[in-house]
Design a protein around this nucleic acid. Structure first.
Lengths: 205, 205
DNA sequence: TTATTTACCGACCAAGTGGTCTGGTTAAAG
DNA sequence: CTTTAACCAGACCACTTGGTCGGTAAATAA
């Protein structure tokens, strides 16, 4: 096999297993040995490919976490349809996936955000970058909604984005362990009520 | 000094210092030695008063965290005034405190919830108990609002409670590090818009 | 006063932790 | 066919972790 391809494959395997365990047990509660045991690889292999545990984690964020965010929460709201519907459906799908996931430990980005908030500037930078992209994308979607006449032109797009992100971060934590299906259902109903309250007022002829 | 009083005093000192560090650095990233160093106490003292690190943490939750939740988020919404105003003001005050707190690491209960979600059944039980009390209290406040004619009688109290808790859990994570004041402002504005959308419709005479 | 209980000390331990280093294997390049 | 370097094994290291244990001094009870 091509040397470079092999390198990429091994690194990818490590990152996938790493994300799985970091997500499941948390970064500080997961040792490199834990990850290596899963793959039957050695310390030598690990430190040949990565400088440190932190460097390893940063690469996981940039590759896997960012990618997950794109496919789950960013791309789905980029269409030209009614922004409110896009957002509503996107959140619905993301939460439904979480409900059906046997082993749900919360929102990946949210969990890491929480674990490193105010504790690790380097890692927070990368996490915040992803969060920022999501935020910008939401703002764009909302402005498009205003332009297309689906959203009331008086609403503040930035405010809505902050509110949506907050509620999503929260519900993903709130859904773990305790009747996730019921909580998802309740959350989505109220989210739709909220979204309706910012939609463009129908002009009564 | 009375023996029992001294015992209580020492245990309380340990718990206060413990909560401070667990909140700041996270449970898994804080060692018992860290806490002991802060107080110039020894391992012997610690294990004389507590069975284990976990037992220590559980007592902190039951004593300090529960108490904090009561004074910050539960008692303030128990009055007989307009429930929507009570909730709005309560959230406003809580967030304002966070903004002005030089060292804000997020919502204490939320952080721990996130750290132990799906990872430690014992501790989660105690955290969920507190969360449940908050939820029940919010539901009660909303039902009172409906009864008093401040909230639309058609809204589902449980749904609103879930939505409010979610948004609060989220904004507290989202506020750490990045322009907390601006995010608080944006969140509160949209929260008020949402709350307005569930208030009782004025009867136009 | 004396006996006993309580609060606390700090050395110690086994089990990890992230990270280094030496050396061996394998596949591509010259 | 030799050289070279990427890839990986695993022993090893210094350090930290939660937790134990024998001891001591002071307060309480006899």
């Amino acid at each position: 096999m091509d040397k470079n391809l092999k390198r990429m494959a091994t690194m990818h395997r490590m990152q996938v297993a790493g994300l799985e365990l970091f997500y499941k047990d948390g970064y500080h509660n997961t040792s490199i040995d834990d990850i290596l045991k899963e793959l039957s690889l050695s310390k030598g292999a690990f430190y040949h490919h990565f400088d440190s545990k932190e460097d390893f984690f940063v690469q996981i964020i940039q590759n896997l976490v960012a990618h997950k965010m794109y496919t789950m929460l960013i791309e789905p709201i980029e269409g030209n349809a009614n922004s409110l519907d896009l957002i509503s459906n996107c959140f619905e799908d993301a939460l439904e996936t979480a409900v059906h996931n046997e082993l749900d430990y919360g929102f990946v980005l949210g969990n890491f955000l929480n674990e490193f908030n105010g504790r690790n500037k380097v890692i927070m930078k990368y996490l915040n970058d992803i969060l920022k992209i999501w935020e910008v994308n939401l703002v764009t979607a909302i402005q498009r909604g205003k332009f297309n006449g689906h959203i009331d032109r008086h609403v503040d797009s930035e405010e809505v984005a902050v509110f949506l992100i907050s509620s999503y971060l929260g519900i993903r934590t709130f859904m773990v362990e305790n009747s996730p299906g019921a909580r998802k259902y309740r959350y989505m109903n109220q989210l739709r009520i909220y979204l309706k309250s910012i939609q463009a007022k129908k002009i009564i002829a």
